[in-house]
Design a protein around this nucleic acid. Structure first.
Ligand SMILES: [Zn+2]
Ligand SMILES: [Zn+2]
Ligand SMILES: [Zn+2]
Ligand SMILES: [Zn+2]
Lengths: 135, 135
DNA sequence: TTTGAAGTTGACAATCATTCTCATTTAAGC
DNA sequence: GCTTAAATGAGAATGATTGTCAACTTCAAA
């Protein structure tokens, strides 16, 4: 994977701390704005670089929203997928051993190697469904 | 879903025809360039609009490449997923009934409704693996 | 602790896919 | 043919992401 030769700078620490307080997937822009608002400002480019480095190191998960923006989240370690509310962003980590096996089998059957997959489930969470109904 | 009130224009026809000859997932930019090269030029904005309309109508599949670009492909009808070579773009349509059930069950268990999912498998196809080995 | 190489940062410019605008065409129905 | 709403396209605008590069830190050797 990647060298964990990252230096512990104020900026990196600030980004990590913010991610720890955050439960939803957030874009680099959002995180940057929140850092600035909290007085712990970090340059936008640095936010991007830090998040990408963390993703490369496997310290955060990334997914692409419907409109193609990258969103990051501090997740538990180990391979898993996400159930994401497309309204409020609430996120649940889910695991599916069967899916993992299926995906690997399918790839092998077709002669593919060096395989990885993306799997995200989007929907409306109970809270948002309720809110929508009573409006 | 969407009204199929689309007008059969030269442009729309050209895009559809091109998609029919194309086996790989292609970006709007790529398709636009190929149309222009083939003399059957269509405005870039129109290519975008047409592809989005076709996607909304379920006539083409869309996926996001690793760098966030939308790629389109004329697929068989019915719900399925893709096994895509990240080097040459070769694409295989795959189905996984077990995955469908799992995804629905997981969503229901967490109170999510109006659910859909994205699942793509990326890897290196046999041909590309061979080519890489002999270089 | 001083010091220098190497990693980091940030303001700002540059990219580049995608969307928007709006004047001009075109298909559909009468 | 005539009317009208949909469709088109050239070019501007948007907006996320990346590139640039001088200034700033960290680290560890001296
Ligand atoms: Zn919600
Ligand atoms: Zn998985
Ligand atoms: Zn290939
Ligand atoms: Zn599916």
């Amino acid at each position: 994977m990647a060298q964990n030769r990252r230096r512990p700078t104020r900026q990196r620490t600030a980004v990590q701390a913010l991610l720890e307080q955050t439960d939803d997937f957030s874009s680099a822009q959002e995180l940057h704005a929140r850092l600035r608002a909290s007085g712990d400002a970090v340059g936008l480019a640095t936010v991007y670089r830090t998040l990408q480095a963390m993703a490369a190191d496997g310290d955060v998960d990334v997914l692409r929203t419907d409109d193609g923006e990258a969103a990051y989240r501090q997740c538990s370690t180990g391979h898993h997928h996400h159930l994401v509310c497309r309204t409020c962003g609430a996120t649940v980590e889910v695991e599916g051993p069967a899916v993992e096996k299926w995906s690997e089998r399918v790839a092998t059957e077709h002669g593919f190697t060096d395989v990885h997959h993306t799997l995200e489930i989007f929907g409306t969470c109970a809270d948002c469904a309720r809110a929508a109904r009573s409006s």
